[in-house]
Write a protein that binds this DNA or RNA. Structure first.
Length: 443
RNA sequence: GCUGAUAUAGUGUAGUCCGGCCAAUCAUGUCGGCCUUUCACGCCGACGACUGGGGUUCGAAUCCCCAUAUCAGCACCA
């Protein structure tokens, strides 16, 4: 008998560790990135990507690169550069360095030329509709058969401005018979002259699949976490990695996230602001981080929420309920208490001169101190309490009162200071406000 | 139309890869209780889910097929 065999039967499964799942190939630290497009302020969707990456960098160590993806001048809002920076500061991300794609066009051109030189890309002058039709039928366009010399010459002409906007593009030769039409000979570069770029003087612009693949390689990304709307792009970018002989990063794609009742689309938000429907980017009906900050949400609450949501591929509709619960964990201990009287009714109280009530700022913790509430002869009481016809009440931190109902006429009279009496009579202890000390508010 | 992905309580989430220890985890929520000169926090308890249908198997949340629903891509956007 071999006792070793016996013990192996009782090996138990690895118990899972709390929080996010481990990433493969993370042993020597990771390099990850947060790559927003500066088209507006950051919103909850951005925060998910930003915090997930941040959490993994904190877990494994490494570098966190902020990459501003401003390769489409039509989608760049000059003010967004600052807004994005502010939002990132608010999130307290552990960013190691920042790069702007608009500073890196020469690198994109270099890789573009190399792809062309190796016969992996060509300059296409077909009409869009014509190309689309050919693509859907798995057919090559005439440009695809051009020689590399010809293609390089055409690319140089593009860079020199020989072509008008919309007239040409550079396409990657992928696989025209690929079952997924989205993979077939997708574009790498375009000519764009109608909208000047804020930060770079260019005629030829890289498209995201080229610029992202180049930068993910050049900046040494080990892992990329992004939304599943990029799944197709990941597969497209893998063609570039393969053609260039680069090792691709480990990819993870999480599902789409919404939060009930708010708009997360930057373009929809912008339209709403322009039409006057929203007061600005921080309108609390929007899902921007600045709007959430106005709601009193702390960045740590958003972080904890998105980490708990994790990197699942399921589309979710998150609820404010859960986010507020996370927020309460953070702010409750630091929040002083005040009295609140819903549906207030002013009731005169006879039998007591002016006194000043002392209420603890944070019940249960005397070190937080007291606040003073002067009683001046009448108090606001909650309408629901009076509607119940309660005859005897304890005004918290003040005294007991007896209530007299005479139709709509309600008055009260002082009925002693004894808390024990109130308790023995099971009198409700209620929050109150004095007339001069109250501030109207809406919840 | 083509391609791909996802489907666990009101909400979010674990378990799915490697079927049995899952009469399904945790949080949030709702309700009740305790604590407390209110509210909250904290503590205790209750409620509440494997999308549907076939199949494989002694056994299916887990594997296979079909259906349904949702999402994404098929842009000279990111």
């Amino acid at each position: 008998m071999a006792p070793d065999l016996y013990t192996s039967l009782f090996e138990k499964k690895e118990k899972k560790k709390a929080g996010l799942p481990d990433l493969p190939e993370s042993g020597n630290g990771v390099v990850m990135r947060f790559a927003p497009n500066p088209s507006g302020p950051l919103h909850l969707g951005h925060a998910r990507a930003a915090f997930l990456n941040d959490e993994y960098i904190r877990r494994y160590g490494g570098r966190y690169i902020l990459r501003i993806e401003d390769t489409d001048p039509k989608r760049v809002d000059p003010e967004a550069y600052d807004m994005v920076r502010e939002d990132i500061e608010w999130m307290e991300l552990s960013i190691s360095s920042t790069v702007f794609q608009s500073d890196r066009f020469s690198k994109y051109y270099e890789v573009g030329k190399e792809l062309i030189s190796n016969g992996h890309a060509y300059v296409c002058r077909c009409d869009n509709e014509v190309f689309k039709d050919l693509k859907m039928h798995k057919a090559a366009c005439p440009c695809r058969s051009q020689s590399t010399e010809e293609a390089l010459e055409l690319f140089d002409q593009m860079l020199e401005g020989a072509f008008a906007e919309g007239e040409v593009g550079v396409r990657l030769k992928t696989d025209l018979s690929h079952p997924d039409p989205a993979m077939r000979d997708y574009p790498l570069f375009r000519v764009l002259t109608s909208t000047p770029h804020q930060r770079v003087d260019a005629i030829v612009y890289p498209l995201m699949n080229l610029s992202v693949a180049v930068d993910d390689h050049l900046l040494g990304m080990t892992h990329v976490i992004r939304g599943k709307d990029h799944i197709a792009n990941t597969r497209r970018q893998e063609f570039i990695f393969r053609y260039m002989g680069w090792k691709p990063p480990v990819y993870r794609h999480y599902g789409r996230m919404g939060i009930e009742g708010v708009v997360l689309s930057t373009s929809q938000m912008r339209a709403g602001i322009q039409s006057g429907e929203y007061s600005g980017w921080d309108d609390i009906r929007l899902g921007t981080l600045r709007a959430m900050a106005r709601r009193g949400i702390k960045p740590g609450a958003v972080r904890n929420a998105v980490v708990e949501i994790g990197i699942g591929e399921t589309d979710i509709q998150f609820s404010w309920e859960n986010l507020y619960a996370k927020n309460k964990e953070i702010i409750d201990a630091g929040a002083d208490r005040f009295f609140f009287v819903p549906d207030p009714v002013l009731v005169p109280v006879s039998g007591s001169g002016p006194v000043i009530a002392e209420a603890m700022r944070y019940p249960g913790d005397e070190s937080r101190g007291y606040r003073s509430i002067p009683f001046d002869g009448s108090v606001y009481l909650p309408g629901s309490e009076l509607a119940s016809g309660a005859p005897f009440l304890r005004l918290k931190d003040l005294f007991n009162i007896r209530i007299f109902y005479d139709g709509d006429n309600i008055r009260a009279e002082y009925a002693g200071d004894d808390l024990q009496e109130a308790r023995s009579k099971k009198a409700p202890i209620i929050q109150w406000l004095s007339k001069e000390h109250a501030h109207p508010c809406t919840l």
